[in-house]
Nucleic acid binder design. Structure first.
Lengths: 137, 137
DNA sequence: GTACATCCTGTAGCCACTACAGAATCAACC
DNA sequence: GGTTGATTCTGTAGTGGCTACAGGATGTAC
């Protein structure tokens, strides 16, 4: 059994976050020492590693909760897990598309700016008068 | 002079958000009618459109505050504006790189899953035992 | 006059943490 | 046994950028 500090080092999840996860019932409350310190085992390391990696991949807490619940039933079909992952993939792809658009726009803005005075700065102009909008008088 | 509702419609920024921007001093407190309703003019539309578009491009409020302050000094060099935009471009590019990595990993995970039982689900396995980590025993 | 839209202030909630304060306990060394 | 410093505890409040009320006051159209 290890302390919360050791669990934190093993999983890369910081201590405050581990306690937070316990508070929101993402991880179960662990047993304690006589003095009240939390004690964790190998299963906790696995669970928290799972959470950490899923968070890194952008899954939100609700999705992670669902996946953890499904893991409790090994004979269940993993179709639902697969759907959560696919949804996440779709979200990632839409974010990528959006960011590529932003990159294009930012690049163009920056290239058109000749580093002159603010009064004639294209960056500011573009931001104040975005193309495709009828801001008119 | 227009009301907050009209300003909201013109700029696409919702009413609560406009009042929030006033509270955090991103926009100046406007004059009021006798009964206390806010009144906005053309300059407010321009400013808020600027803010809206900058937010769409992912600039944070602090960056927008700086850019707005620079606009107050038209003879100032727009070097700083340019740097903020470049920083933003860099942030966008790093987010893109990260998301592309996530996409690869998610795609692989999903492809390896044969939609069988949770017990043997590769998605769960990969998340619980991420490659490149010495989880040992 | 009355119905409904719009506006006001103030506060609380969202997500996923993060950062304290102030106290208790533990491990190591002398 | 004493002291130092690391670790842990609880509880609360803050972050960013909104969003969503509640409960009331105005404004507008018929």
């Amino acid at each position: 059994m290890i302390t919360i500090g050791a669990l934190s080092k093993h999983t890369g999840v910081n201590i405050e976050t581990i306690r937070y996860y316990e508070r929101i019932r993402l991880i179960p409350p662990p047993p304690r020492t006589d003095s009240g310190r939390r004690l964790y085992g190998a299963e906790d390391v696995r669970r928290l590693t799972f959470i950490r990696h899923a968070r890194d991949l952008g899954f939100d807490i609700a999705a992670i909760k669902t996946m953890l619940a499904l893991q409790e039933v090994p004979e269940a079909s993993c179709e639902q897990v697969s759907r959560i992952a696919s949804d996440q993939l779709e979200a990632v792809e839409s974010r990528i598309r959006r960011l590529l658009g932003l990159r294009t726009e930012l690049t163009r803005m920056i290239n058109e700016c000749d580093n002159g005075k603010v009064a004639t700065c294209r960056i500011i102009e573009v931001l104040a008068d975005p193309p495709g909008q009828a801001t008119s008088q």
